[in-house]
Design a protein around this nucleic acid. Sequence first.
DNA 1: GCAATAATAGACATCAATATCCAATTATAG
DNA 2: CTATAATTGGATATTGATGTCTATTATTGC
Lengths: 157, 157
Amino acid sequence: MFSQTVEYALRAIVHLADNSPNPCTTEQIAKATKVPQAYLSKVLQSLRQSNVVHSQRGIGGGISLIKTPDELNLLEVVNAVDPIQRIKSCPLGLKGHGANLCPLHRKLDEAMRVTEHAFSETTLAEILASSTSSYPLCNEPEDRLTILGEPSKPPVK
Amino acid sequence: MFSQTVEYALRAIVHLADNSPNPCTTEQIAKATKVPQAYLSKVLQSLRQSNVVHSQRGIGGGISLIKTPDELNLLEVVNAVDPIQRIKSCPLGLKGHGANLCPLHRKLDEAMRVTEHAFSETTLAEILASSTSSYPLCNEPEDRLTILGEPSKPPVK
DNA sequence: GCAATAATAGACATCAATATCCAATTATAG
DNA sequence: CTATAATTGGATATTGATGTCTATTATTGC
């Protein structure tokens, strides 16, 4: 129901939120989220063009969130890469309908409206704070520390 | 959020439900629903293979619903052509997660669950009976009679 | 049996999503 | 100023969704 691109974008944003406000390199995000790096860079470009993330070139650079995790919701991320297209007028182009949707398209649009609303009400902070036995993107709590600390590759400066 | 194929399948089924229990030819459905006829025939094949519709070749044949409109729900139609894929295990393949989804994927799956439920609770009869100013697939009430009666092409037999 | 009707099957075409690769550009550290 | 780190942009490949075309098969009426 959601595109691969949406899945990738959300994974990347979760990782960024987890490290917020520090930047992460595309390579690091790709590894942590298991997304093809070259494709991820395209997805991140979309997120940058939509002002969801900020990018900084050169040593010590990378991608970082523009908002804080508690100000950023899932809908902003989804709409940046693969917007939820609400049905605004009759898809058959029937003049008699116009903005007045028939029962079928009202049902379809309603499903999208509900999804849109659920996403808009969920912040990244909530995702990170959810108490569950699984931590986002990480296998074990130890993994999380490993990724966060990056012990095998200490941060420059 | 939903594929073109789902849209086409639902349009066709609404038209069939409207004429139920009489059969409709692919050509007639294509015209009434504004779906490319050759592609529609593929979509209808999927619906037949999933036992949503019955097909009959030859003169007087066509496509007809297997269930009555009040026994058929939207989910059966959607799943026949483009199944809603619920997230059953961690998309990253993290062993520590397994069937225990992380907060991100639980949110995504929850959105799909809600959509799935809404569709499973809506029958075709309800779609046809919904009181709204727009009738499904038709421009005006007159159009509906035109399509139903097919005055320009009286039914064989 | 023959002709007309209508679905079926398969091959083929087109387009957008997904994915990869590489050169160019920008920024930083020293 | 130079080497390095990192994003950016463009070209290209691959795949699946969408769409078209033609021949075949099944059914009915004559």
